[in-house]
Design a binder for these strands. Structure first.
Lengths: 286, 286
DNA sequence: AACCAATGGTTCATATACTGAACCTCCATT
DNA sequence: AATGGAGGTTCAGTATATGAACCATTGGTT
């Protein structure tokens, strides 16, 4: 559950949400062998999500597969730096206040969320469907913000705390198509995790989808990450003209008529263009 | 420069800001000896501030006093986890997108900023002066949000990226007075860094200030952190009835008349009470 | 009441993985 | 071409992280 959803549920209305059935394996890091202590500790933070806000020592041990003593020492050290805080009675850990402060520092210098949020909101309002922006972080996408106008009884659920895979989302496809070539190569060479039966797990099929995205300037993916969800994505470019993130609109497949898709497409392209410009990006020359 | 300030300056008007003259020594960690690798790496993140958004390897080495190779390895590992990102041309590092995502996760579970922001805004509007909320993190305060109605030509500058000391701020005094007793003992035993000539650096003077704060239920400090700034602070309590943070209103000393102070005092007490209740806190019984 | 399982946390010998002096490369200035 | 400063890399040595075994507490079951 993401931020605004949490809020809505608490205070007003509980709307029906499309239930998700992902095969969702915990994205394992590619290289378990050579991993520094810092990475091991920081990865603990990734086990938190909107639906799992509190995690105890034992659960961390189970999730991470590491030794209890090690995990405990990492937790203590993270806590000492404000990245975690411990509930003194339940002894469970949750994300700490340092994250708030540091994210505010980043936003002060690079007001990405502030810039992108109105664009996402407008896009969602214009299309009447869930829109979200994500940006590239390593070989995955990190959500920046999302908005759902909630015009309909059924919505696409979007968990802002979850990292998005590149090969199974329309945002990811847009980034693969217009992003760094070596990223494309790395993803095609790596394991393509299936989330639904329709996830493109065959490299050739993914390559074809990327090529089509390059041709059309916009990506489209149906039921590849969530069942019953269709989405389109458009790249946001950085100053060098490489995709650094993407804007996306997701709609329950039942509502995804060709006309609706076309309307979304136009809004999406305009919004992504605006986002690129606002963030000081440049469109690729080739 | 904090978030909204940055924004205001960019888009509208550049108002005169009270210049600050702190002796501001970089807060050194207390125990340099026993420090794990994780802490060493995470401390690198603290060198970022609103005014120093980009830091290169050599500058990190200078700031941290550690070996270049070590720092570099830490930076690489932080970057791999999205806590930093490197500008490919300048090779300088800045805070990464993972912080945005994780802070969103925390806010989803514990919408502190969302809850506190309207209270701070109202408080600032009601008093006509800068208001901010901070919460305890270790032995310092971490800003949560701030708002300045900007009614006057001179404002107090507030850097949301900077951690606040407990002994030199009204917020800190409020937390010391109503927070955990061992925290009080630790701060009184430790070094009391002077920021201005009026900073209470004598333990007995600080003890007296704490006692007065306990009596009056509200703290007051003049020119102890920033010259020419007077502020009052009120504690926000957690579920156990211990102060976990504070609300504060800061005003340029020239405007700090007794009447104004009394008006601020009343608004501040009401706002802090509301914040405690909204965050599920309880007032101390004793 | 005794038992069991599961929780959070600690100890300490072991050896892994972190450290740092020295080195390399690139680039702008002198 | 020499200098200084930038970012980055190497590798021996050892500081530092690791994990099996341990303890303490809690809550449920027999």
């Amino acid at each position: 559950m993401n931020h605004w959803l949490h809020y809505y549920c608490q205070s007003w209305v509980f709307l029906s949400i499309i239930l998700l059935h992902r095969r969702a394996p915990r994205a394992a890091s590619l290289d378990e062998s050579a991993m520094g202590t810092i990475t091991k500790a920081l990865e603990l933070l990734n086990f938190f999500s909107a639906s799992r806000a509190h995690i105890g020592l034992s659960e961390f041990v189970r999730l991470s597969g590491r030794d209890k003593a090690t995990v405990h020492r990492h937790l203590v050290e993270l806590e000492a730096n404000g990245f975690l805080e411990q509930n003194p009675e339940s002894r469970a850990y949750r994300l700490g206040p340092a994250l708030l402060r540091l994210s505010a520092v980043r936003e002060a210098a690079l007001p990405m969320r502030a810039v992108v949020r109105p664009i996402v909101t407008d896009l969602a309002q214009a299309t009447g469907e869930l829109a979200h922006a994500s940006m590239l972080q390593g070989a995955m996408l990190s959500p920046v913000c999302a908005f759902d106008p909630r015009r309909h009884g059924t919505q696409v659920s979007f968990d802002q705390s979850e990292m998005l895979p590149l090969h199974a989302t329309s945002s990811g496809l847009a980034v693969l198509a217009f992003g760094p070539p070596d990223l494309r190569a790395a993803v095609l060479a790596g394991r393509l995790t299936p989330y639904t039966p329709d996830t493109p797990t065959d490299p050739d099929r993914l390559r074809a989808a990327i090529a089509r995205t390059r041709d059309e300037g916009i990506s489209r993916l149906d039921q590849a990450f969530d069942r019953e969800v269709s989405s389109q994505g458009a790249p946001i470019f950085d100053a060098r003209g490489e995709a650094m993130g993407a804007l996306s609109v997701a709609v329950p497949s039942v509502r995804a008529t060709p006309e609706k898709r076309a309307a979304i497409r136009d809004h999406l392209i305009a919004a992504a263009r605006q986002a690129t410009l606002s963030l000081g990006g440049a469109f690729p020359t080739t």
